[in-house]
Simulated scan of single mutants.
Amino acid sequence: MLDDSFITGLPKAELHLHIEGSLEPEQMFAFARRNRISIPFDSVEAIRAAYSFGNLQDFLDIYYQGADVLRTERDFHDLALAYFRRVHADGVTHAEIFFDPQTHTARGIPFQVAADGLCAGMAAAQAQLGITSKLILCFLRHLDEGDAFETLAMAEPWFDQIAAVGLDSSELGHPPSKFSRVFAAAASAGLKRVAHAGEEGPPEYVREALDVLGIDRLDHGNRAMEDEGLITRLVRQGTTLTVCPLSNHKLCVVDDLADHPIAAMLKRGMRATINSDDPAYFGGYLADNYRAVAPLLDRGAMITLARNSFLGSFLSDAEVNAQLARIDAFVAADATA
Score class of each variant (00 low, 15 high):
2 L>I: 13
4 D>E: 13
6 F>Y: 11
6 F>C: 01
7 I>D: 05
13 A>W: 01
15 L>S: 07
18 H>D: 11
20 E>I: 02
22 S>I: 01
27 Q>I: 04
35 N>W: 14
37 I>H: 12
48 R>Y: 03
52 S>Q: 14
52 S>P: 00
55 N>V: 07
57 Q>V: 11
59 F>M: 03
62 I>Q: 06
63 Y>M: 04
67 A>S: 10
68 D>Y: 14
69 V>T: 04
71 R>D: 12
72 T>F: 12
72 T>E: 08
79 L>P: 02
86 R>W: 12
89 A>P: 07
96 E>W: 01
99 F>K: 01
101 P>H: 01
104 H>F: 11
104 H>T: 03
108 G>A: 12
108 G>K: 06
112 Q>K: 15
113 V>C: 08
115 A>R: 00
117 G>Y: 04
117 G>F: 05
127 A>Y: 08
149 F>Q: 06
152 L>F: 02
155 A>Y: 05
156 E>D: 06
156 E>F: 09
160 D>F: 03
164 A>R: 05
176 P>G: 12
180 S>Y: 06
181 R>L: 07
188 S>R: 15
190 G>M: 13
196 H>L: 05
199 E>N: 07
200 E>R: 05
203 P>M: 03
208 E>H: 06
220 H>Y: 08
223 R>A: 07
230 L>Y: 08
234 L>V: 06
237 Q>T: 14
238 G>L: 09
242 T>V: 09
246 L>Y: 03
248 N>C: 10
250 K>A: 14
253 V>A: 08
259 D>Y: 13
259 D>M: 10
262 I>M: 13
270 M>P: 00
280 A>Q: 04
281 Y>D: 02
285 Y>M: 09
286 L>N: 05
293 V>G: 03
296 L>C: 09
302 M>W: 04
304 T>M: 14
307 R>Q: 14
308 N>W: 12
310 F>Q: 05
312 G>W: 00
318 A>R: 11
318 A>E: 15
320 V>P: 10
321 N>M: 08
325 A>F: 00
328 D>K: 09
329 A>E: 15
331 V>G: 05
331 V>F: 11
332 A>V: 06
334 D>L: 11
337 A>F: 13
